[in-house]
Simulated scan of single mutants.
Amino acid sequence: MLDVSREQALAYRIAEHGLHREGTGTHELPLLDLGLQDSMRDTALLSLAARRSGPVTPESLVDDPRLVLVWSHRGAPHFHRRADIAELTASLVPLGDADALARMVWQQKELREAGRSAVDILFETARAIRKTVTRPMTKGAASTAITKLLPPAFSRWCRPCGTTHVHEQLMRLATLHGGVRLEAGQSPATLAPLADRGRLSTRPVPDAVARVLERYLRFNGPATPGDAAGFTGSARACVTEIWPTERLTEVRLAGRRTFLPTDRLPALENPPTPAGVRLLPPLDPFTQCRDKAVLVPDKGRAKEIWKILGSPGALLVDGEILGIWRTKATGKRLTFTVTAFDPLRRADRDATEAEAARAATARGYRDIAVNWA
């Protein structure tokens, strides 16, 4: 069995994530095989800026007709290639009730109490969404209309909204099955029908799910079945049933039994040396890996990077996360506050400020300031 050091694994991941910035165009970005999460302010745009060598602007994602924003993995919004939507939708069909319930995350208890199969609940909601969202409409309006078509057990009283509406996670998981996307760049969140809605299919496609697991391992491996299950939102027991063993090789990393797609072994054995500075936004695909102790072994530093609410961005220097950063917009100025865990070389500080300027441009700001905490 191949024994891999932490440094080797990180070097491999950085290369697979495209963080060497080798000139890939947006649509060709390999990470779009999994999707770029866009849960916070311009997260996907900043992840793109960290990987593309060319200019990135506020329009780079929202104006690309080859891309579409949908609620996908774990019910989180991701940009995907339009050409991949059919297979993506198939991969999100639960393998059974246990899988469907696991994907409901914090709303499992309430949906168990509905007295119905979790799979049935998901697809009844999808049918209501398909019937309701036939034109662009705000999430609030869509939720109100959908709720009226569903049994009361599918809904809950929402204090922030001051009304009863369909469970949030249930709606997110059902929307793509209902043939509905999100309008990129719109606030408040707006739903719209996909150009090609296709037919609603409730049939599990284990091979499609297995391919998602394999892609997770390509970008974030070597990793465990539990790590891959965490990305999809499924339960490990469900993942074990469809684990693509024939296409994977077992590798030992940090004392753990992990896996990597067999065709990526040469890249793991001889990865390029990480170099340079990148500003990774909160929820960047690189920091979204499930084995966070591999990325940042120091528990104190890990607590600064991954918070329950309001996580900062990560400062990546020569392959190691050596600090955090936040931004604050005041009028037309975007101010970056960077906190380094250890003193940085002058060249690294200069490179950080250059990356801040690049990130600001991606968000549409020309006036920037960088403060070192």
Rank of each mutant, 00 (worst) to 15 (best):
I305D: 13
I121V: 04
K332D: 15
P94Y: 03
L36R: 08
Q169V: 04
V239C: 09
H78T: 02
S39C: 14
L122Q: 05
A192Q: 10
A118L: 09
R66P: 11
L36S: 12
P266Q: 01
Y12A: 00
T202Q: 10
S5Q: 15
H165V: 00
T327P: 14
A223V: 07
L101K: 02
L31E: 08
A90Q: 08
T147M: 08
P274K: 01
L95E: 07
T273L: 09
A126W: 02
W243F: 14
T163Q: 05
A223T: 00
Q8N: 10
L150D: 01
A76T: 14
L2E: 07
T24V: 12
W325P: 03
P274E: 10
L36C: 07
P225C: 03
C238S: 14
D99S: 06
T240E: 08
A359G: 04
I121C: 09
L10G: 10
R197D: 04
R278Y: 07
A357Q: 01
A44T: 14
V133Y: 11
R66K: 05
R197E: 13
V180L: 12
L92A: 02
A340T: 13
R290G: 01
G300K: 06
P58K: 00
L217G: 08
D97A: 15
F79R: 04
P65R: 04
T138R: 13
V56T: 15
T144K: 12
V180N: 03
M40K: 15
L122P: 08
T43D: 15
R215S: 09
D342L: 05
A49N: 09
Q186I: 02
W325Y: 14
V70T: 07
R211F: 08
F336W: 11
V317A: 04
W372P: 11
P222V: 00
L217F: 04
V277L: 01
A83K: 04
D196G: 04
R211H: 15
G310V: 10
F123H: 07
P151M: 05
A100K: 13
S143G: 01
A237K: 06
L19F: 10
E269R: 11
A235N: 06
T202R: 06
A184P: 15
A235H: 10
W306R: 04
E110Q: 05
T224Y: 00
I308S: 12
T337A: 11
A76R: 13
R301I: 14
A369W: 09
V93W: 06
A210E: 12
L122S: 10
A184R: 12
T273E: 02
D38S: 15
H20Q: 06
P282R: 15
G276C: 06
E250N: 04
L111Q: 07
D298C: 03
T335E: 13
I129L: 02
L101Y: 04
